Simulated scan of single mutants.
Amino acid sequence: MIRTKTRIFTVLAVGMLALAGCTGGGEDPAPSPPAEESAPSDGGGGNSYATEGPVEEDTEETAECKADDSNQDVPAEAPTADAWPDYHGTGVPVSDTYGPTSREGEVWTCFSHSPTGALFAAAYLRPAVASTEVREAYVSDDPKSSEGDFEHPRMQLRGYKITGYDDTAVSVELVYEGATNGESGLVAFPVTVYWEDNQWALHEEDISSVKPHSVTGLSGYTQWSVG
């Protein structure tokens, strides 16, 4: 299925429209999240958004995926991120254990084949799908595109819940905080990743049909954000 640039932009923008619906002056706007919910200090936070040290480029020695697949449990609490490097305005959790253990330019690869690895992959792919390189690498049924990058939405991850899991696919909802008209609000994005060709991948039909929705707090979700 061939996707137009307008269609992708609409999908990327729809979350901010949902956010606008809950904070942008409607008849019943949702309140801004309490400080302890929107910026938790104990939700698996690692270091700051800045990447610590140079990004390791792939070599013959580092090309083999070193992510740890041994823990197949669905995480009962927020996994610890070793850092939260900035990806076009969004902090993305990274882990030496669960991935991505290789970061080269826009494309970050090597996530563990586990529920936690899938969670880290989803948290990266949600903002990264705006990149042409990432779509070519991770959207399994999308043709190569020369349309260029799309606008990267600037929102910060606040929490998640895993809604389905087996060894071939993991479905999660990722809750992001963003701002519109000077007010902040929370938006939940459903994301499903599929284990294909030794990596977690996205399906184009899922991206096109995603339906983010506004939430008023993190009840029912696990808090997960930079500390």
Rank of each mutant, 00 (worst) to 15 (best):
E56L: 13
P54Y: 02
T109L: 01
E56N: 09
E61F: 08
A76V: 11
R103N: 09
D82W: 01
D69V: 14
A83I: 00
V55F: 13
W84S: 00
P93S: 04
A83F: 00
D82M: 02
A76E: 15
W84V: 08
D69M: 11
Q72K: 14
D58P: 11
V94D: 02
E64D: 15
T97A: 09
T59S: 14
A78C: 08
A83C: 04
P79T: 14
G99A: 07
G105E: 09
Y87S: 02
G53P: 08
D68L: 08
F111A: 02
T90C: 05
A83L: 01
E106T: 13
P100N: 07
S95T: 11
C110L: 09
E106D: 13
P75W: 01
T116C: 06
D68F: 06
T90S: 06
G99F: 01
G105A: 08
T80V: 12
W108K: 03
R103V: 11
R103H: 08
G53C: 11
V107T: 10
D58G: 10
E57T: 15
P54V: 12
C110G: 09
E64K: 14
C110F: 03
E61A: 14
V55A: 13
Y98E: 13
P79S: 07
K66L: 12
G91S: 06
V92D: 03
G105V: 12
S114D: 08
E56F: 03
S102A: 13
D68K: 02
E52K: 03
H88V: 10
V107S: 02
H113A: 12
E77K: 10
P75R: 03
P100W: 04
T59R: 02
S95H: 01
H113K: 12
S112W: 04
P93D: 03
N71F: 07
P115S: 12
E60V: 10
A83W: 00
V74Q: 09
S114R: 06
A83E: 00
D58E: 15
H88A: 12
A81P: 02
Y98F: 15
E60R: 06
Q72T: 14
T101I: 10
E57N: 09
W108V: 05
E57F: 05
T59H: 00
H88E: 14
G91H: 01
V107W: 01
E56A: 13
E64R: 12
E61L: 13
D86M: 07
P54M: 09
P100Q: 06
D69Q: 12
G105C: 08
D82H: 03
G105D: 11
D86G: 03
V55K: 09
A78V: 11
T62F: 01
G53V: 13
K66T: 15
T97D: 14
V92H: 00
D96C: 13
A67M: 10
